[in-house]
């Protein structure tokens, strides 16, 4: 089988369009994960023991079960309880929650890396807990967390093909469709690989640059 450049050119627009969807899915999923992950992390630090316990169990549960199962669960089991979600919405919820569990651990590590003396200094100048987190702790927890957060950004991006199982029109799904229609899989799958490779490598570099910039901006070397 020889590489067909004419075919490549023909399917390129479709593949790029699907790439847009993949990026959108990864971006939205990550945004959800970033916010809920922070809530998971903070919930485990309140004086309310029961909240800590429940959150920890949820995080543990999500991390111990496969993402594809969680996607199926939200999409197919939801309707049995009257929860009808589009593939996109179901996919975003599942992947967002999944990565929230992982990100919460990254946040937790970042928050725990802030020395105890910083909290005590906040008490000494009488900041509220909210002010302490917002102004002192989270800005310092960010730089050590960026590398881990970046890894999961790349990971969520690479996991988006799983969304094809419920019919989200992302890159993998487009490649399958194109391949099926033309009985040619070499070009579409290779293109998927190259697109993923380029975006992953670019993001990894961007994340390193971002980390260095944040550290410099915050005066921390």
């Amino acid at each position: 089988m020889k590489w067909d450049f004419a075919f490549t050119a023909e399917i390129l627009p479709k593949m790029l369009w699907a790439t847009g969807n993949t990026l959108l899915a990864a971006g939205m999923g990550y945004a959800i994960a970033a916010v809920i992950g922070l809530l998971f992390a903070l919930a485990q630090r309140t004086p309310l023991r029961i909240l800590t316990y429940i959150t920890r169990e949820i995080v543990e549960f999500i991390r111990s079960t496969p993402l594809v199962l969680q996607i199926f669960f939200v999409y197919y089991v939801g309707p049995e309880y009257g929860l009808y979600l589009s593939p996109w919405v179901a996919g975003m919820i599942a992947i967002g929650l999944h990565y929230a569990a992982y990100l919460s651990e990254v946040y937790r590590g970042g928050i725990e890396s802030v020395p105890k003396g910083q909290w005590e200094a906040c008490t000494a100048i009488n900041l509220t807990t909210m002010q302490t987190y917002r102004r002192i702790v989270l800005p310092q927890a960010l730089p050590p967390a960026i590398a881990g957060m970046g890894n999961y950004l790349v990971a969520i991006f690479k996991d988006t093909p799983i969304l094809s199982v419920i019919g989200v029109a992302e890159l993998m799904q487009a490649a399958n469709a194109v391949g099926g229609q033309n009985y040619r899989y070499l070009e579409p799958y290779t293109m998927v690989g190259v697109i993923f490779l380029v975006i992953s490598l670019t993001s990894a570099r961007a994340i390193r640059w971002f980390e260095a910039t944040v550290r410099r901006k915050l005066g921390m070397q």
Binding site: P115, G117, Q118, E120, A121, A124, I125, I136, P139, Q140, L218, G219, M220
Partner: peptide, 14 residues
């Protein structure tokens, strides 16, 4: 009450 600490505990990002 105000306090100064052995290890200063200044906010490093400020």
């Amino acid at each position: 009450i105000g306090m100064c600490f052995q290890h200063f505990n200044l906010f490093p990002h400020m």
